[in-house]
Design a protein around this nucleic acid. Structure first.
Lengths: 206, 206
DNA sequence: TATTTGTCACCTAGGTGCGAATAT
DNA sequence: ATATTCGCACCTAGGTGACAAATA
């Protein structure tokens, strides 16, 4: 394709094999666009408060769930790097049921033990971070907190909360989805954030 | 410029004299893009709760301002139409000082009267609606409320609140700014939303 | 017995008007 | 006098753990 590099007219541009699209101004040069072309970089996601998460994890993290929806404690919060500052992303969280077993808390042993097979799992609902969609620069600027996310054990929930089976074990997954039409998805999870959903705290030793 | 209309490769396109940009998928046809090309349409902004605003207006609307910032009552809220659903916009509000006079409230006459020349006005700060930037479809979906906006009389305010001179008359202006690089700005205001900034209510007859 | 549910008092954050005290 | 500042009591919305009652 031929391009008049000096053109300053109002245009939309098509670059072959580019992966990023820009909002362009009336006045721009082809060179300024090419200069902004994305270099591949590795997306990284770091868990915040990992110290706290690990303390709970060592005791067996429990997460209260209620019919009306309960926030998580600790709150899931991550630092993201390696995004394209100009590109739009949607960031979501879902819960992966990581063992198809039912658990119960043994007061004797002060620990969780698995008992029999668990409920079969439907794919988890997605919690879409309310800032979505936003540019990479926004997501990387500060930790991204999922404190508004709520868990429920109500299979018929109509408030958009994340549905779980009580006494089952889950681990949150963070998804970073590129909004360039490719919908490329990058998924991250952290071992220390796994938890067992409960309707009342079992371990009273926190 | 030559374009292979059947191409399905990953590209960025160049259209001359287009005004709208799209996030494109890997697979698309030139025709599908052209079909989405914007038709010019008129942006309109309608005041919400205009009945309430008019009731206050007929008595002389007062708006409390404090050092730490005070929300407006009534809240400014507008319905927007005529945007391009796919285009990004920033929506802001500022305050226009509509009479360079100082006012005082006459208890005798139960009305505001002007007294002498007012303070000279610096250009007002902008309140950027927190949803900005967002697509036209978002702004048009529901009334856009500026309830988080706060007014202050502290000329040294460092919280980003809108600074006003007490006992002066203002009228909010809504700006809809196209985020296509042209930064085209559409401005709207409503007579019935004019008010006098006060540090304490003067008219006790509300 | 093991689990779930609903209720409740408690806490917090933040917005509000009012009136006393102060400032111009 | 007029205008501003400040503190305060009040209200609301929403999140929390505890516990008693209900469920299975």
């Amino acid at each position: 394709m031929e391009i008049d590099k000096s053109s300053k007219r109002r245009l939309i541009i098509l670059c072959i094999d580019c992966e990023l699209l820009f909002v362009m101004s009336n006045n721009f040069s082809i060179d300024s666009i090419l200069a902004k072309r994305p270099r591949k970089s590795l997306i990284r996601v770091f868990l915040q408060s990992s110290h706290l998460w690990r303390r709970f994890h060592s005791l067996g993290t429990e997460m209260i769930v209620t019919k009306s929806g309960r926030r998580m404690f600790p709150t899931l919060s991550v630092l993201i790097s390696g995004l394209d500052p100009m590109k739009n992303y949607v960031v979501t969280v879902d819960l992966e049921c990581i063992e198809l077993k039912r658990f119960r808390y043994s007061f004797h042993q002060s620990k969780w033990i698995s008992t029999g097979p668990g409920e079969s799992e439907l794919p988890s609902r997605m919690f879409v971070h309310p800032d979505s969609p936003a540019r990479g620069s926004h997501w990387m600027r500060a930790p991204v907190s999922f404190d508004k996310m709520k868990l429920t054990n109500n299979q018929l929930d109509s408030n958009g909360h994340i549905i779980v089976n009580s006494m089952h074990k889950y681990r949150p997954r963070v998804h970073v989805i590129e909004q360039d039409g490719s919908q490329t998805r990058h998924t991250f999870s952290f071992e220390e954030t796994e938890f067992i959903a409960v309707t009342a705290y079992q371990n009273h030793r926190y």
